[in-house]
Amino acid sequence: MTDRNAFALGRRGVLAAGAAQILVLALPRVALARPTLEEAVRAFTGGTEVQAGGVRLDIPPLVENGNAVGVTVAVDSPMTPDDHVRRIALFNQSNPQPEVAVFRMGPRAGRAQVATRIRLATSQTVMAVAELSDGSFWSSQAKVIVTLAACIEDLS
């Protein structure tokens, strides 16, 4: 408690000291004010409505280690020049940042499928959103239970 108070006083002093230092201290606040899953998805779609379905999100429902969780996303798409998947994005509900990755592809992919390994800080919902060439967005989500969370690795 005493340490915290000392920090608060120090911060006031620093705030008065200069704009650059204010910026440095503001960073943890930005991290605390995490955009929600919905806000992140809206930023990706540009406000277009997301329909459920058409996307297959393969992720284990129960994982022991949140540091590397295998994820496969596949979209029902013929992947022709007229009808293909442009982008697939992955989002999470409870990590420090809602975005996980954005993949760009096109008709040359042949199949709309991508796999990677992600970090999960805690048990939460993972969501995949696909943007098709006609401008529509489709999504799927899955709940994952994590018994050992990411971000607590030993630093020694």
Binding site: A68, V69, T72, A101, V102, G110, A115, T116
Partner: peptide, 23 residues
Amino acid sequence: EEIFSADFFPAISANPFLSFTTV
């Protein structure tokens, strides 16, 4: 020609792994 690209965020695991397809 670029056939695939990805933007990663910190939620991607260490030693990032990707699997994708092309014709």
